[in-house]
Design a protein around this nucleic acid. Structure first.
Length: 270
DNA sequence: GCGATTTGACCCCC
DNA sequence: GGGGGTCAAATCGC
């Protein structure tokens, strides 16, 4: 294990401790009597993850690509880059960065592939459905309105289906409108299964070598994303308004080292 | 040009 | 035949 990897682990552990403190700060409503300043604490946490990513970036070129493509340290301190996700009346979502959205020509309305898309945004700075959240690089390949469902169901499959034969697929569906913003409350859920009433239990199909998980992730809230580790069956929320959380590619050698040497169950036990 | 998303069409199963 | 899952053309951003 390289020095950078060890340091990355140390940073992750430090981040865990800081997050615990933040949890205490919020749940116990510590104010002036608290031993830490909340803003300072958040900055420390951001530094921790930034340091970790920096270490990983410098220690592995494979990971470097993934990190560099999808993550920028400055995003931690730049809440203004939070994308606004709008759920349209027909269930489709669009992201509004403040720029006008170019509508497809009216003559293309009925044409396959016509859709609105945000422009002038560096997509590398935000999480997209194609990014990995559980060790797989998901790519959306379909969306369908389900009978008696308020929201459409999205279909994802592994990006490496063609080149590596990965048969992993998953389905994502929102259950209810206007879920409470857990992230703003800095709530970090950690539980078996998905009993969150605002998001669907979505099955994940498993074929061949794919490691099955019983529940899946959902990214339907305006500012929070639900992540689930296929190995630990735990659900976590991250606040995208303050930090773009993502997981590196499935081919992450460095992360594998980190994961192998850490008890993620313990890491996630907030 | 590449890789991503969108979305209508198509296929399959009940 | 209807509903759900997948395909693939169209489109977009880099």
């Amino acid at each position: 294990m390289s020095w950078n990897t060890k340091k990355a682990i140390e940073e992750l552990v430090r981040g865990k401790e800081l997050t615990k403190q933040l949890r205490d700060l919020l749940t116990k409503s510590l104010t002036d009597d608290g031993f830490v300043n909340s803003e300072d604490l958040v900055l420390k946490i951001c530094d921790t993850f930034a340091n970790t990513l920096s270490l990983l970036t410098n220690s592995n070129t494979t990971t470097t690509t993934a990190v560099a493509d999808y993550y920028y340290y400055d995003d931690f301190n730049d809440v203004s880059q939070k994308p606004t996700i709008n759920i349209t009346s027909d269930g489709r979502k669009s992201e509004d960065s403040g720029d006008s959205i170019k509508s497809p020509p009216s003559t293309h309305r009925d044409r396959r592939g016509s859709y609105k898309r945000r422009k002038c945004v560096d997509s590398r700075k935000k999480i997209t459905s194609a990014l990995v959240d559980d060790g797989y690089a998901w790519r959306k390949y379909g969306q369908k309105q389900i009978l008696n469902a308020n929201h459409p169901r999205s279909y994802f499959r592994c990006t490496h289906k063609t080149d590596q034969g990965c048969q992993a697929t998953k389905q994502v569906q929102k259950l209810e409108d206007d879920p409470p913003n857990f992230a703003n409350n800095s709530t970090l859920t950690n539980k078996q299964g998905n009993d969150n009433p605002f998001f669907s239990s979505v099955k994940q199909e498993s074929k061949e070598d794919y490691k099955p998980i019983s529940e899946i992730t959902y990214n339907g809230s305006s500012s929070s994303e639900y992540l689930l580790s296929p190995h630990h069956h735990q659900l976590s929320t991250f606040d995208l308004s303050s930090a773009d959380m993502t997981v590196l590619s499935p081919d992450h050698d460095v992360l594998s080292d980190v994961v192998d040497s850490l008890d993620l169950d313990d890491l996630l036990q907030f």
